[in-house]
Simulated assay, not measured.
Amino acid sequence: MPFDHPLPPLPVQPDGVAWPTKAWPESPPAPDTDTARLNRLLDRAFTDPAPETMGETHAFLAVQGGQIVAERYWRDFTPGSTFPSWSEAKSITQALIGILVRDGKIDIHAPADVPEWQEADDPRRAITLDMLLRMSSGLKFIEDYVPGSVSDVIEMLFGSGQLDVAAYAASQPLEHEPDTFWSYSSGTSNIVARCAARALGADADTFREFMFWELFSPIGMRSPLPKFDAAGTFIGSSFCYCTARDFARFGLLYLRDGVWDGTRILPEGWADYARTPTPAVPDTETLGYGAHWWLDMAGPGSFSCNGYEGQYTVLVPEKDLILVRHGKSPLEAKDAVQAWIADVADCF
Rank of each mutant, 00 (worst) to 15 (best):
F158L: 10
A199D: 10
L61R: 12
E56K: 14
W294N: 07
D15H: 14
T286R: 14
C242V: 05
E119L: 13
D4T: 14
E318P: 07
E175P: 01
R249P: 03
D296G: 07
A291T: 03
H292Q: 13
F247E: 06
P282Y: 03
R40D: 14
L96N: 01
A50Q: 14
L129Q: 05
T128C: 09
P49M: 08
N190W: 04
E116D: 10
V146I: 15
R222H: 14
W24M: 03
D144L: 01
G299Q: 03
P9F: 06
M211R: 08
L331Q: 13
C305F: 14
T21G: 06
V150W: 01
P8E: 08
L295E: 06
T57W: 10
P267Q: 06
F83E: 05
M156R: 02
F210Y: 15
G290K: 01
I127Q: 04
L7Y: 05
L321Q: 10
T188A: 12
N306S: 15
D203R: 10
R75C: 00
P218W: 00
P84V: 09
D346N: 13
Q118L: 12
G307T: 11
P330N: 10
R44P: 00
R72H: 15
F234M: 06
T180Y: 11
D229P: 05
G258Q: 03
S85L: 11
G148H: 13
D4M: 03
R256Y: 08
Q67W: 11
F158R: 07
S136Q: 07
A274K: 01
G232R: 11
F83H: 15
Y308N: 07
I142W: 00
F228G: 02
T21C: 07
P277Q: 09
T263C: 09
L331I: 15
T233S: 10
G201A: 12
D43Q: 13
S223T: 11
S238G: 13
P282H: 04
L10C: 13
N190I: 07
